[in-house]
């Protein structure tokens, strides 16, 4: 029998749980989860970049926002010169391509050359970039300025914004869950590929990886591009459900949020990051009603505690715990030598 990693076991357990969930919750809650799954895709894009490639982006909402605005502009029929075009498919394509290109440009600029930006410097500069892009969105009358773009149409299956609309909450729930699962499987595949392993070697020791012949700048740029495109996809899927793109999606606030989801869930696995996003968003919607303005205080406190006490994140620690448990059991049954 194929042996599953502890992260996969947790992922499968979570998948079974989420498959059964719509049977017991109201369609209202199911609709919320459709959006949480999209946030989870966003979290996966950051976890891949931060946990696997070791590149901390403090302004990752830029790519989410580009995806959201691209989708809105296309499906609202706002493409300059092409007023008749409002295809959802083209919107998705535009979102992924534009955010990927933006990330590729930023990556080429930051990682190229003799002295690339790294670590904390990279984080601060990406944060400044997010503030700049947010300003641009606020001051762009084409993108609706401070108000953003309203009444973005829902997902439509026709080729040009016609055809059946997907608005049924249960269908949306499973559709978004399927996309999330597909994205996670894709990223696990990427992480296990030759590219993913080279990337991990650059994360562990860039000088050594470069000395062994890896083109670190190119690897990092490709990781940044892939992560940006994925964030763009999540932005597009978000706006198609939420119906509203605003500058708050592109700047500081959402960048901080996604960082907290990923850190709380666990940055080292895409699965734990996704679960972190879903859990935090769910708790936020349940608790902000009960404890009101104290929620951000609670979340901030939890975040500080997690950084100090369990830096692998809640689900990351759980995965590590399952790992230890399985190793000990295997060692006890004598079928395998004990873990070192």
């Amino acid at each position: 029998m194929m042996k599953l990693s502890s992260a996969s076991i947790m992922g499968i357990a979570a998948l079974l749980f989420f498959c059964a969930l719509p049977a017991v919750v109201s369609s209202w809650v199911a609709a919320d989860f459709g959006i949480y799954f999209v946030y989870a895709v966003f979290a996966v894009s950051l976890a891949f970049l931060w946990g696997h490639a070791g590149l901390l982006s403090l302004g990752h909402a830029v790519y989410f926002g580009i995806g959201a605005y691209a989708m809105s502009v296309v499906t609202l029929g706002m493409i300059p010169g092409l007023p008749g075009v409002r295809s959802m498919w083209l919107g998705l394509l535009a979102a992924v391509v534009l955010s990927g290109c933006a990330a590729a440009l930023v990556g080429a600029f930051f990682f190229g050359g003799r002295r690339p930006l790294k670590g904390a410097f990279l984080g601060i500069v990406t944060l400044a970039l997010a503030v700049v892009i947010e300003r641009l969105a606020i001051n762009s009358s084409f993108l609706g300025g401070m108000n953003g773009l309203m009444s973005v149409p829902p997902i439509t299956l026709g080729l040009n914004g016609d055809g059946p609309e997907v608005t049924d909450t249960t269908v949306l729930y499973y559709l978004m869950l399927a996309i999330l699962v597909a994205v996670i499987l894709l990223m696990l595949k990427v992480e296990g590929s030759r590219f993913g392993k080279s990337l991990a070697s650059v994360r562990e020791n860039e000088l050594r990886a470069a000395t062994l012949g890896h083109d670190a700048a190119r690897l990092k740029n490709r990781a940044f591009t892939l992560s940006g495109a994925l964030a763009g996809l999540s932005g597009a899927l978000f706006v198609a459900q939420f119906g509203f793109a605003s500058p708050s999606l592109i700047g500081f606030a959402l960048s901080a949020d996604v960082l907290i989801w990923v850190a709380l869930g666990g940055r080292n696995h895409v699965i734990s990051a996704a679960l972190g996003a879903i859990t935090v968003r769910y708790l936020e919607s349940r608790l902000s009603g009960a404890i009101g303005a104290a929620w951000p205080l609670f979340l901030g406190g939890l975040f500080i505690l997690s950084v100090m006490l369990f830096p692998k994140g809640a689900f990351g620690e759980a995965i590590a715990w399952i790992d230890t448990f399985r190793k000990n059991r295997r060692a006890a049954s004598g079928s395998e030598p004990p873990a070192a």
């Binding site: 670590g119 904390a120 984080g123 907290i260 205080l297 901030g300 406190g301 975040f303 500080i304 100090m308």
Partner: peptide, 14 residues
């Protein structure tokens, strides 16, 4: 170093 960013970010929120 990176964790100081995260911890102080949380502190700012609090």
């Amino acid at each position: 170093l990176i964790d100081t960013i995260l911890a102080t970010w949380g502190l700012a929120l609090v």
